[in-house]
Amino acid sequence: MSSLLDLTPVIPVVVIDDADTAVPLARALVAGGLPVIEVTLRTPAAREAIARIAAEVPEATVGAGTIRTSADISASVAAGARFLVSPGTTLSLVEALDASGIPYLPGAATVSEAMALAERGVKELKFFPAEAAGGVPYVKALSGPLPDVRFCPTGGIRADTAAGYLALPNVGCVGGTWLTPADALAAGDWGRVEKLASEAAALR
């Protein structure tokens, strides 16, 4: 797989409450031009959703987000996740992510956290929570002392603020929840999801 940061301008960050919505949701995102999908492990349905997308939507690259433990990693890989994303990073977690054998984006919110990961050779990171941690000015400032580190900012980013991040040289893509509004998922409004995905895919 190419770098996760180069596959798409926006990675949809999806919270799925009903696994039955996973496949039509993934198909709508792919149809809109966003084939990389992060399913967060925030609901009991998440692992089944990952498994269904992996099995039934082969054109999608589905991953697992909110990875916090080695158990999360093993369960996600078993379900068919093709990449892993963590909100933050501990030493034991990054060692387990390394051992998973699949691409991952470990979370970092400070210069020290980014430096610690870069020392391990991990130079593509999730910057989270992006807006709360300083937003575009903060990520821009990181490019000076950390020119070899690239980020996927996630957390509080909206359709109208994503372009500001994507314009930065140290940002490969952003993660966003705005592509899959809870009311659209509940109503099965896949046309709306596809339209939001299409607009996001055109950001770069």
Rank of each mutant, 00 (worst) to 15 (best):
G134S: 13
A130H: 13
V77Y: 00
D72G: 15
I50S: 02
R150F: 08
V139N: 01
A78I: 14
A46G: 14
E95K: 09
L142E: 07
A133L: 01
A133I: 00
F127D: 03
A81V: 15
L146I: 11
A64E: 06
A49Y: 00
K126R: 09
S143Y: 13
G121H: 14
T66L: 07
A116K: 13
G80A: 07
T90Y: 02
A108R: 02
E56T: 03
V136M: 04
L97G: 07
S100E: 08
E48S: 14
R150K: 13
P58Y: 01
S74I: 12
A109H: 05
T69G: 14
E124G: 15
A46C: 15
L117G: 06
G65D: 00
L125K: 03
P147Q: 13
L146K: 08
V111W: 01
A71F: 10
G107K: 12
A54C: 13
S112K: 11
S86E: 05
L97C: 10
A64F: 06
F128N: 00
G101K: 15
I50D: 01
G107T: 14
A55G: 03
L84W: 06
P137E: 12
A45W: 00
S112I: 09
R68S: 12
I67N: 06
A54R: 08
S86I: 02
F83K: 04
E131Q: 07
A141H: 14
K140A: 02
A99K: 07
A51F: 01
E131R: 05
S100G: 11
D98A: 14
A116Q: 10
S74E: 12
G107A: 15
T69R: 07
A71H: 09
A116V: 10
S76E: 04
A130T: 12
E48V: 08
V136C: 02
Y138F: 11
P129C: 05
G107F: 14
P129S: 08
A54K: 08
A54L: 10
F151G: 03
R120N: 13
V111M: 05
M115I: 13
S86R: 05
T90H: 06
G135A: 11
F151W: 05
E113Q: 11
Y104L: 14
E131T: 04
A99D: 02
K123C: 15
T43M: 01
I73E: 00
Y138I: 03
A99E: 04
V149I: 05
S74L: 13
R82I: 15
G134V: 11
A60I: 00
I102W: 11
V149N: 02
L93P: 09
A130D: 13
A78P: 12
F151R: 01
F127K: 05
